[in-house]
Each structure stands twice: as C-alpha cells, then as structure tokens.
C-alpha cells in the first residue's frame, strides 16, 4: 500500500504489540539513556507510589512511530506530537493506531494513538507526514 492512495477517514493497519516485558523496558533504558528506575525496578516504582514499573512514555511513542516506517520512500514525518495520557504497565497489551484525518496539499494529517487492552488511550496525538514532490 502507498500512503498516497489513502483517503481521509481511512486507517493504517493497526499493530498489536506483544505484552510489555521488563526486558523491553531495560532495553529501552539502555538504548535511550533514560535510567529512571521507576521503569525497571519494582521497589523504586512502589516508592514513587506506583503499583509497579511503568513503561517510558517515549518507549510507547517510539513504538507508535513504526506505523509510518515503511513509507519512508514516499515522504517523512515532519511533525509528531504526543500527549501522554495513561501509564503502561508490565503485561499490558498495546495496540497502535493511525487514521488519516485530512489531506492538505502534500501533507497528510494523521490522528494517532496507542490503546491498552481495556481500549483506553495511553498516548494520543498527531502526525504530519510530508510527501516528497
């Protein structure tokens, strides 16, 4: 599929991630340099008043961006804006979604979100994908 063929109101194929594991978050900590222990160590998460470790918001935001990776020859992500709305816990099953909201010249405006197994949005935002002329 090409993004150019997508019509307003249509969605990219949504992706369901495997349940979140501690190793996922340890890997993200190492790759990103964000070693805040509430993402990897149970006691630290509990000390911070959380029921358990939570995913880095940027881990979820990074995952969500992959809905657009296969379209790099058509254009690139000019704007990517996310609001962090809910926490992601271990074993949560996250689904990534993007729907084309509007076409404006060579710019495609998407609404994007990641939802958990209870269909609750954990992050939500917009992507502007610019198509090369």
């Amino acid at each position: 599929m090409k993004l150019a063929e997508l019509q307003a109101g249509e969605s990219l194929e949504s992706t369901q991630l495997d349940p979140v594991t501690r190793l996922d978050l340890i890997k993200y900590a190492g790759a990103s340099g964000d070693y805040n222990p509430i993402h990897t160590i149970d006691e630290e998460a509990k000390k911070a008043g959380l029921p358990g470790i939570i995913a880095h918001g940027m881990w979820t935001m990074g995952n969500l961006s992959k809905l657009f990776t296969s379209f790099y020859e058509e254009g690139y992500m000019e704007d990517y804006l996310i609001r962090f709305k809910g926490m992601v816990f271990l074993n949560d099953s996250i689904t990534l979604k993007a729907v084309l909201h509007e076409k404006e010249g060579n710019k495609l405006h998407f609404k994007v979100a990641a939802v958990n197994q209870d269909d609750r949005e954990v992050i939500k935002g917009t992507v502007v994908f610019v198509q090369y002329e």
Partner: peptide, 13 residues
C-alpha cells in the same frame, strides 16, 4: 531524575 511526569512531547523535522 525521579518524580517528574512527561506530559507532552513533540518533534518537528
């Protein structure tokens, strides 16, 4: 490095 909440994040390229 503790006790902060990431509220929003955006990138412009």
């Amino acid at each position: 490095n503790k006790g902060l909440i990431h509220g929003e994040q955006s990138f412009h390229y």
